[in-house]
Design a protein around this nucleic acid. Structure first.
Length: 593
RNA sequence: GGUCCGGUAGCUCAGCUGGAUAGAGCAACAGCCUUCUAAGCUGUGGGUCGUGGGUUCGAAUCCCGCCCGGAUCACCA
């Protein structure tokens, strides 16, 4: 039964006229007042033609008399606090307990298809903290949309071509002595990253030599031998030179093996991976097509441009004078291939907010080229991750490496757990598993609980402090609930499928049922706002509320069987909501810790 | 300079489709382990919600100006 509708109906009956649903403003009662729901009566004053207190009083009395589910009310200023009967809450819990959907809807064959692009790494260096935020957001968003009944295709566009790759290749060729991941014991992506750094180091050395010889920085750059070798390599690659392509393939395969390890550790995956080396030519074709149709224009040097001044933007280059592609061209090509492959209804790009302009332009260009989805594409834009000591800068070596961070989180989780004696009696295997779940839970939750749009500060120290609003705190609560349920089962207690309605439950317990019921709304909101943070913060609220009561519950020592069963069912469902919610965030939950 | 985003407690963040005395955590201080897991719970102190106007019965929330911070405006990706 819908309380909102009941109250509206009651008000209409009371005053003998129809009213807009927006006038019935029901919200959760604030903690410090008695009641579950509060009706804000200010909007109704015009209809009642009385002052706020009188109006609230009158509506309250009418509801008490005519609505079975309202068991009490009180009036404070213009606020009518309604207490809903215990039977209603027990009935509600029974419904949730029987359905076990927790706000989720399974996708159907004919549900809309959403494609989500996330991660999008370069193949010349390992993943870092910024990628972690990207990956976690992208994966979580996918899970949230799935839970709302969409068909989701997770995709990754790998930037596997360009001058940056050639730098690593060149350095490997010059100074690598045939090093491989096997021979060095390094992860493939780290090995390649090291060569990229080595190139940069040697390049700078070269520049410094030129500059000390009296050249300006620009002149030195123009004369760099290393850079021109790298460019030559790119030309060879584009021309399909066999040796260069073989080297490229080999080194990329090392990087992919390294990325796969990181993705696996993070618990993210993809349904379909695209490579820019396979899409950039498609984009060129599409742009030339647009040129023929007169959507774009060409300058004397042969370069192709889009005029976006009518849309309040600038002119945008799409093909260089020599006919080669730029970033935008590749994204057009990738989009084309994707829509050839899938009947996509909506495209979501999880990309940092430094590319807001790029996606604004991409949306317009795709639209001009006749892609239906162009206008409606979503750039899921997120802010930078900074460190307490300032921005991450690769030059200053302040980049937080993803693999290092993950390893550090797991290690710290293990140390803390061991210190607290939580691992006593665990096998090595169990200890490792718990450490992984907790360490990664800490990292994921810390990042996902923040509004994606905001720049955030990642404090490694704080994130591995397992107190407060953290993943481990929530996981711990879940583990305790499982422990209670285990012990109940050991005592031979079998949970009923449905609870009797006449159990005398406390106000706190009613509040918890109310919170569980709210989860459904939260899951929808998370999908609408594209924000996992909504779910994270909700779960924390729920867990905090539950924890406060946990100490008073004495669930297993309760002598009234009906009340004990109610508390067990309540706990079990809260556990399930935590598990479901964390699954939407891509976070695992331990059975014991 | 144009455009976009942000500014809430010492720190990290919620709250933003307008509603009651602005909430958590961390840090500080004071309590609670014969108890279903103390990675917990309870309490105390801590705020010109960047700023000035406007709309409204009511503004952290909506509108306008300004200040501060970030991003972007490349024949880089």
């Amino acid at each position: 039964m819908d309380i909102q509708q009941s109250v509206q109906q009651a008000i209409e009956n009371l005053y003998g006229q129809e009213i807009q649903p927006s006038l019935v403003q029901l919200q959760k009662t604030k903690k410090e007042f008695k009641g579950h729901l509060t009706l804000v009566v200010f909007p109704l004053l015009k209809i009642s033609r009385k002052n706020p207190e009188q109006t609230a009083q009158e509506i309250g009395e009418y509801l008490m008399k005519n609505e079975r589910i309202i068991s009490d009310f009180n009036v404070i200023k213009g606020f009518l606090n309604l207490t809903i009967s215990s039977e209603y809450w027990i009935e509600l819990l029974n419904g949730i307990h029987a359905e076990k959907l927790y706000g989720t809807t399974a996708p159907q064959a004919d549900s809309p298809l959403v494609m989500i692009e996330y991660s999008s790494p370069n193949t010349n260096k390992p993943l870092h903290l910024g990628h972690i935020r990207n990956n976690l957001l992208g994966f979580s968003l996918s899970e949230i949309l799935k839970a709302n009944g969409y068909n989701v295709v997770k995709t990754n566009i790998v930037n596997d071509r360009g001058i940056h790759i050639c730098k690593s290749m060149l350095a490997w060729k010059k100074w690598g002595n045939g090093a491989t991941p096997e021979s060095t014991g390094k992860k493939g992506d780290h090995l390649i990253g090291d060569f990229y750094v080595l190139f940069d180091k040697e390049y700078k050395k070269e520049l410094a030599e030129f500059q000390s010889g009296g050249l300006t920085k620009e002149e030195a750059e123009a004369q760099s031998k290393l850079m021109s070798e790298a460019r030559e390599m790119l030309r060879k690659w584009e021309a399909g030179d066999k040796e260069t392509v073989e080297l490229w393939k080999m080194m990329n395969s090392w990087v992919y093996a390294g990325f796969d390890e990181t993705y696996k550790a993070l618990g993210v995956d993809f349904d379909k991976i695209y490579y820019e080396s396979e899409t950039y030519l498609e984009g060129k074709e599409k742009v030339l097509e647009g040129l023929q149709k007169g959507v774009f224009y060409q300058q004397e040097d042969g370069s192709v441009w889009a005029d976006l001044t009518a849309d309040g933007l600038d002119n945008k280059l799409l093909l260089r004078g020599d006919g080669t592609s730029v970033y935008m061209t590749q994204d057009i090509g990738t989009a084309k291939l994707r829509f050839d492959d899938y009947p996509i209804n909506k495209m979501v790009y999880v990309v940092g907010n430094e590319q807001n302009y790029h996606f604004q332009v991409l949306s317009l260009l795709l639209d001009k080229l006749g892609f239906e989805f162009g206008k409606g594409l979503v750039h899921f834009s997120y802010g930078m991750v900074e460190l307490p000591e300032g921005k991450m800068k690769s030059r200053e070596g302040t980049v937080v490496d993803a693999d290092d961070l993950i390893a550090e989180m797991i290690e710290t989780a293990r140390e803390t757990s061991a210190e607290l004696g939580k691992l006593d009696g665990c096998s090595e295997e169990e200890a490792q598993k718990v450490s992984e779940i907790v360490g990664l839970g800490a990292l994921k939750y810390f990042i996902l609980k923040v509004d994606p749009r905001k720049n955030m500060v990642f404090n490694p120290k704080e994130s591995i402090d397992f107190n407060g609003n953290t993943g481990p705190f929530i996981q711990y609560t879940y583990a305790r609930i499982q422990s209670v349920l285990r012990k109940a089962a050991e005592q031979g207690i079998i949970l009923p499928g449905s609870l009797p309605l006449n159990v005398a439950i406390s106000e706190k317990e009613e509040t918890l049922v109310q919170l569980i019921a709210e989860f459904e709304t939260v899951v929808k909101e998370a999908a609408e706002t594209y924000s996992p943070a909504v779910i994270a913060n909700y779960i924390y609220d729920l867990v905090k509320e539950y924890n406060q009561f946990y100490h008073d519950f004495s669930i297993l020592r309760e002598t009234n069987n009906d009340l004990r069963n109610f508390r067990l069912v309540l706990s079990q469902n809260i556990g399930n909501v935590i598990k479901t919610g964390f699954a939407l965030l891509g976070i695992d939950v331990p059975e014991r810790m």
